[in-house]
């Protein structure tokens, strides 16, 4: 058995005290060193004394019973959360809870004017959005009853309803295929004017009509999340 040429660390002494020297370590070597080294002996004795002191601490007197009230079961056990989640949840310690409530109240008081402004803006957005939606719905509904030539015109009317005074009004006056693009969700007048002359040698009217219907449907779908967003904001 080889002797250690250095003193034992506190962790080694502490582990020796608990008989918890891991297998990789040489417990016997440590003990052999301890028998011969006065400095380590003294440190070991101090450590043992201190631990003995801690072990002899009497348990504190219970201030009360911590039994739970019988009615806690029904409402409280349902969530069946894990301990980790419990630790994240705010504790029902009166002081902490009171402080949290106070902070929440203060925060809500501070954000009140901001909330009002937000509500107004969202209301406006909602009105615009609903107008926009209605126009697109109307155009979709009108399609089946119109001939293919008129359907293009209905597309223009929808765009002009949605955004009066926009450049698209001008674009809508260009021949058929142009307004089809203009009635899409992205009002890009330059693109519209660029498309219109190219589209002059148009495909067959039947193709145009089916294209238009598809685009209208797609547009309708594109508006749907926007409508939901508007409704949520409005709420």
């Amino acid at each position: 058995m080889s002797q250690l040429d250095r003193h034992l660390t506190t962790e080694q002494l502490s582990a020796l005290l608990d008989d918890q020297v891991s297998e990789g370590e040489q417990a016997d070597t440590y003990r052999a060193h301890l028998q011969t080294c006065e400095q380590c002996q003294s440190e070991f004795a101090e450590l043992r004394q201190m631990v003995r002191l801690l072990q002899t601490l009497p348990p504190p007197t219970l201030p009360r019973s911590f039994a739970l009230p019988a009615n806690i079961s029904a409402e409280d056990i349902e969530p069946a959360t894990t301990p980790e989640r419990e630790q994240e949840a705010p504790l029902p310690i009166p002081l902490a809870a009171g402080r949290a409530r106070l902070q929440a109240r203060r925060a809500s008081r501070q954000s009140r004017p901001l909330q009002g402004a937000l509500r107004m803006v969202s209301g406006l957005v909602a009105v615009v959005g609903i107008c926009f939606m209605l126009s697109s719905v109307l155009s979709t509904l009108s399609l089946p009853h119109l001939a293919f030539t008129n359907s293009a015109a209905s597309g223009t009317s929808s765009s002009s309803q949605a955004q009066p005074g926009n450049n698209q009004n001008g674009a809508a006056k260009t021949p058929q295929p142009g307004p089809i693009h203009a009635s899409g969700t992205r009002p890009v007048p330059t693109r519209v004017s660029g498309v219109a002359p190219n589209a002059k040698p148009a495909p067959t009217p039947l193709q145009l009509c089916s294209q238009l219907r598809q685009q209208n449907r797609l547009m309708h779908l594109r508006h749907f999340p926007f409508l939901i967003y508007v409704i949520v904001l409005f709420g």
């Binding site: 739970l68 806690i72 056990i77 069946a80 894990t82 301990p83 989640r85």
Partner: peptide
């Protein structure tokens, strides 16, 4: 609080 939390989490 710890006992309440333990009761809520005892299924885990």
């Amino acid at each position: 609080d710890a006992f309440i939390a333990a009761f809520k989490a005892i299924r885990s």
